[in-house]
């Protein structure tokens, strides 16, 4: 393997890791606060992608300035996150917070089945494609390798902005402090006047927006097909579990690890591509059952 290939694989990996991080951070945030692993997260990713693609295609077809497809990506993601995420939390999740973990898992799984089906009914099984933003930004040269600027500059930048914005939000704003307080101890937080119901709602919507954003930003780089939601939920779980569920900065590191490892696998032995993320997850969990950065929790008697 020459240096060129190594650089190419690295760039591929970073671009992919950025998307992976966006989705996984939403999943891990929701888990950290609500204690629910939202399997429908993968569907939010897929639907975010489809809505952004539809919006972008419509803008281009109606003759608007193609640069408007950039805000369209973010607008699509926000709409999906707020509308779909908000409805889900209000109508369904609020009923199951008191229930057994397994039943919560089954409910979000049921939602996943429903959303996968709806997505197929609305957008069909034909692949969707909307590469306008990718083409607009053109190529950049990096160590003699030509690569699309969208993937090597825009995606990582978006991921880094999200990471730092989220850190700032959680550590330096009132709402963030409330979220952290509820995560630490819901009862104590409620007793000092924090509205836990509202905190749950906000967290879920924010997490859902991240999933949809991951999907929307992925739109220009791949064609949208059915089943992308299923793959993404398992993959983002692998990222979140490798880091330790609930770890935000950790998710960024394990997303990079898994993204780059997967990209190298594509070049070295393509058969391993699908297995790579799980291989890493299994290896990490064998040695550290709570993930790389996870905390050991005391067992309750």
């Amino acid at each position: 393997m020459t240096l060129n290939f190594a650089v190419l694989a690295l760039l591929d990996g970073i671009a992919y890791a950025s998307l992976l991080f966006l989705v996984a951070v939403g999943l891990t945030l929701i888990f950290g606060v609500l204690g629910i692993l939202n399997i429908a997260h993968g569907s939010l990713y897929a639907i975010g992608a489809y809505v952004a693609a539809t919006l972008g295609q419509w803008l281009v077809a109606s003759g608007y300035n193609p640069w408007l497809t950039f805000p369209a990506l973010f607008a699509g993601a926000t709409i999906v996150g707020i509308v779909l995420g908000g409805l889900l939390e209000r109508l369904l999740l609020q009923r199951i917070y008191e229930k057994d973990e397994i039943l919560q898992l089954l409910v979000t799984f049921a939602v996943f089945m429903i959303l996968e089906n709806l997505q197929r009914m609305i957008w069909g099984v034909q692949p969707y494609f909307m590469s306008t933003p990718l083409n607009l930004l053109g190529n950049v040269s990096f160590l003699g390798i030509n690569y699309t600027a969208y993937q090597v500059l825009f995606l990582p930048a978006a991921a880094i902005v999200v990471l730092f914005a989220l850190r700032h939000f959680l550590r330096h704003t009132a709402m963030g402090a409330q979220i952290l307080a509820v995560t630490e101890d819901r009862e104590a937080a409620t007793s000092i006047g924090i509205n836990a119901t509202r905190v749950y709602f906000m967290t879920f919507v924010i997490g859902a927006c991240f999933a949809a954003l991951g999907g929307a930003l992925a739109t220009p780089t791949t064609s949208l097909v059915t089943g992308m939601g299923a793959n993404m939920i398992v993959l983002s779980f692998a990222v979140a579990a490798t880091a330790g569920l609930g770890q935000i900065e950790g998710a960024a590191i394990s997303a990079l690890m898994i993204g780059i490892a997967r990209a190298f696998a594509v070049y070295l032995s393509p058969e391993l591509e699908v297995i790579m993320p799980y291989l890493i997850m299994v290896l990490v969990l064998l040695i550290k059952p709570n993930g790389l950065f996870g905390k050991v929790t005391a067992r309750k008697i």
Binding site: R95, I96, L103, V107, A110, M113, I114, N117, L118, M121
Partner: peptide, 20 residues
Amino acid sequence: DDSWQLILGVTLILIILWAP
């Protein structure tokens, strides 16, 4: 055929919430 998973999902939620 087109809405099979949809029906399964809705039924699953109904069972879990009302007939566990």
